[in-house]
Design a protein around this nucleic acid. Sequence first.
DNA 1: CATATATTTCAATGATTATTGAAATAACTC
DNA 2: GAGTTATTTCAATAATCATTGAAATATATG
Lengths: 117, 117
Amino acid sequence: MKNADAVAALAALAQENRLDVFRLLVQAGPDGMAAGVVATALKLAPNTLTFHFDRLRDAGLVTVRRDGRSMIYAARFEAMNSLLGFLTENCCQGAVETCAPVTCKPVRKKREKEPAP
Amino acid sequence: MKNADAVAALAALAQENRLDVFRLLVQAGPDGMAAGVVATALKLAPNTLTFHFDRLRDAGLVTVRRDGRSMIYAARFEAMNSLLGFLTENCCQGAVETCAPVTCKPVRKKREKEPAP
DNA sequence: CATATATTTCAATGATTATTGAAATAACTC
DNA sequence: GAGTTATTTCAATAATCATTGAAATATATG
């Protein structure tokens, strides 16, 4: 990932409504959600929402497909994960402990025990 | 982490120079780097750099301490990791495969990948 | 104290961005 | 085709942001 792509993605996410939209799509998963459903869930005007979807799409963070009258938007997980990887790249010059690993957290909690030092 | 905090952090990172600064500090690790060293490395005017450091600091992404004449800036890894966690929260309703885990990558040799698919 | 170094503050300027309201397009149903 | 639903386009307005140059502050050294 290039710096400019990361800036574009971050800028797309750096807005309250768009961050809400994106996180909703992340939670919805690969099947996505209709624009109208998102508009209702987040109480956004449809034209405002289109504006924000466009930004997310230009940044490569979402895809769209038509289904009848509805437009279905979905998060691009590959892009999200590239972005996260870009931010943590070469962190701490290898001292991974300082820079704790981040994983995609499923809904249910699952913890593994660490042996005490 | 609250939505507003995440927006602040993302906005701080959504700027070419600041993203460069932050990534440099992430790579530098917890000891941080002097402002002047960052300025030289990234070829930024000192006042411009101060402006950007302020944004990063307001967003909680870096800390600063004085050492003689120098100001030493360091990334706040805790904040970075909260942000990454916030973005991936409840992703895919638990279908972790779709939403590949991201880990903090230690330093290793650069590798060009992807021969045309 | 005088001078050099490191960084910050301040004011001005140009550039980008989000929201709105009204109108347009696209698809479905009768 | 008329009417309805879902979404997009367009133009205008208001708000925020990055960079610059000049001057100020803080620390170190002779």
